[in-house]
Amino acid sequence: MAADADSRRLYVLTSDENFQETAVAVIDTGTGTEVAAVPLDDDVHFGISVSGDGRRVYIPNLYLSTVSILDTQTNAAVGSPVSMDGIPLSLAVSPDSSRVYVTLSGGEGRIAVFKAADPHSVTTITLRAGRDPAG
């Protein structure tokens, strides 16, 4: 789960026991109520991150090898998921919300990078040591 910068909203990954009917539950922290449930592709989701400006939520889709992007104002997906060249495990958003960094499993140690303004243009950082970065 992840909270937005002002802690007004909490975004929680949910699914049934078979990782079907996955969604992001949007919680209003002031009232403690669920205000939306945003459906996701049926997949395993290990992480979730909110951009520093609070406008976007990013979710890695493990087996689909994609990253879903949600708009926090509409609680809806933004375009099609971003394709990754590997299995996305975890991600981080730069403090200025301009870039998203995604650890990739399945091969040499790599981190995918894309600009929030142009998410389908993905570049890769290759690590010198280790495989399957995480965290």
Rank of each mutant, 00 (worst) to 15 (best):
A134D: 07
D96T: 08
V102A: 13
S121C: 08
D4T: 11
D4Q: 06
V35L: 07
V57G: 01
D28S: 15
D6S: 05
N18T: 05
A116D: 15
V26G: 08
P88S: 03
L70T: 06
L13S: 01
E21M: 07
I125N: 13
R9N: 07
T72Y: 02
D41M: 04
L89F: 15
D132A: 00
G135K: 15
A3D: 00
T103Y: 09
I27A: 05
T126L: 05
V44L: 02
M84N: 08
T74G: 09
S7K: 08
R8G: 09
R128G: 10
A112E: 06
V122D: 00
T123E: 09
T103G: 07
G79F: 15
T72H: 04
V24W: 05
E21C: 14
S15M: 07
T22P: 00
A37E: 12
G30A: 11
V12G: 01
A134I: 03
T124Q: 15
D85K: 15
V78N: 04
D41R: 06
I111C: 08
V78H: 01
G135C: 10
Q73I: 05
A25M: 09
D118G: 00
D53N: 12
T72G: 07
T123Q: 14
A23N: 01
A117K: 04
D96W: 02
E21F: 08
P39S: 07
I48C: 07
A76W: 04
S68D: 05
R56K: 11
F46M: 15
S80V: 12
A25N: 11
G135P: 03
L64T: 07
D118C: 05
T29E: 02
A25I: 09
Y58I: 14
P119H: 06
D28K: 12
A112V: 00
V24D: 09
I125C: 10
S98R: 15
G32R: 01
L10P: 00
S51I: 09
V26M: 10
T33L: 06
I87E: 02
A117V: 01
T29S: 01
V57Q: 09
G52W: 15
R99A: 09
A5P: 10
T103P: 09
T14F: 13
G86Y: 01
S15N: 04
S80P: 00
R128F: 08
I69S: 00
D96E: 11
S7E: 02
T123M: 10
Q73E: 09
V78F: 11
G86V: 01
V113P: 12
I69K: 04
G109H: 09
S7R: 08
L13I: 14
F114W: 02
